[in-house]
Computed example of a mutant assay.
Amino acid sequence: MATKVVHTADTRGHADHGWLNAYHSFSFANWYHPDRIQFGTLRVLNDDTIAAGMGFGTHPHNNMEIITIPFEGDLAHKDSMGNSSIIKSGDIQVMSAGSGIQHSEFNPNADQPTKLFQIWLFPKTQNVTPRYQQISLDASKQKNDFAQILSPKPEDEGVWIHQDAWFYLADFDADYSKNYTVKKDGNGVYLIVISGTLNVDGQELNRRDAIGITDFESITISAKTDAKFLIMDIPMTI
């Protein structure tokens, strides 16, 4: 029988720094919750709003797979590998920090905030050569379907990372329903609602609510309203 944990939006950690308004699904920075350290290999899920012209100065990472999904506005990225790019709404970016990188992230716009998810997964291999990848997503593939945006295989659709994980974005019409089957034995699913209202295996979820499910093969996801959501299919052991 499936095991579930529900994280409603109002139970997340919150830090408003003025230039950064951040909600943390798992313990991060000054917010600590003993029951919210991680979900399997998912260590960080931050829901960030970065004020116009502001951002994160150069800082280091290692041995983490870092995924950025912007929803509004742009993000200017620079790193110690020599990459310099603008990540836009509708893109996905991944960095395999591996043996060590440094990077900065800024909102380059003077007139609008940037809103994004930043997600960290523990890798299955330590100290890999750092790498960077960024692609634009085809939003039409998300309509009433699970559009793969991340996988473990470079040849598959979406970006890839050093972990047996699969991410999907979906944009369901009201009253649409579809079954989701876990990709790999031992994996669990962490689903967060970006907008709208869903029923996930009998559990109602609203905007920014999330559910983690383990020990299952297939679940039913039904939209009560028009709804957009992110599925993270990830190993439960590091």
Rank of each mutant, 00 (worst) to 15 (best):
L121H: 02
A51W: 04
G82L: 04
Q102T: 15
F167M: 12
I219W: 04
I238W: 05
P108H: 12
D138A: 06
D74E: 14
P154Q: 14
K78L: 09
T220Y: 00
T49Y: 00
N83T: 11
I211K: 06
A174L: 04
S25C: 08
M232A: 08
F117P: 00
V159T: 09
T214P: 00
Y180L: 07
G100P: 10
I66F: 11
D226P: 05
P130T: 09
K115S: 12
R43Y: 10
F122H: 06
K141R: 14
Q203S: 12
R131P: 00
D74G: 01
T41R: 02
T220A: 10
Q134P: 01
A9Y: 06
I67D: 00
I135C: 03
T68G: 04
E217C: 03
T11N: 14
I231G: 08
R43T: 07
N199A: 07
N179P: 01
I50W: 03
F117W: 12
V6A: 05
D138K: 13
P130Q: 10
N127V: 05
Y190W: 15
M54A: 15
K178Q: 15
N199W: 00
L230G: 03
A51P: 05
R131E: 12
M95R: 09
I37H: 10
P235Q: 07
V193L: 03
G73Y: 02
I101Q: 03
I194E: 10
I194R: 09
T114R: 01
M1W: 01
L169E: 07
G18W: 08
S96H: 06
P152F: 05
M236L: 15
H59T: 10
K141S: 11
T49L: 10
W160C: 13
S195L: 01
H77E: 07
N109M: 12
Q163E: 13
D233H: 11
Y180H: 14
N107G: 08
L121R: 01
Y132R: 08
S27V: 08
N199V: 14
I231D: 05
Y132Q: 06
Q134W: 01
Y176W: 11
G212D: 06
K143D: 07
N107D: 10
L121D: 02
Q163R: 03
G53Q: 08
A174C: 09
Y32D: 11
D111S: 14
Y176D: 02
A76S: 15
R207P: 00
P154R: 13
N206L: 06
L42V: 10
N109C: 08
M1C: 02
N109W: 01
I192P: 00
Q148L: 02
S136Q: 11
G186R: 04
T225V: 05
L121I: 12
L198T: 03
K88C: 08
Q112W: 00
Q102N: 15
T68S: 15
I87L: 07
D79C: 09
D185R: 07
G212H: 07
D79P: 08
T68Y: 04
Q93M: 13
S85G: 01
K78I: 09
G13K: 05
T11D: 11
Q203Y: 10
S27I: 07
Y32F: 14
G196E: 05
Q163A: 04
A29G: 06
T68V: 13
Q142A: 15
R12P: 03
H103Q: 10
T214E: 14
I92N: 04
S222E: 14
V193Q: 06
R36C: 06
P70I: 06
I87H: 05
I101C: 09
A227E: 08
K78F: 03
G18S: 09
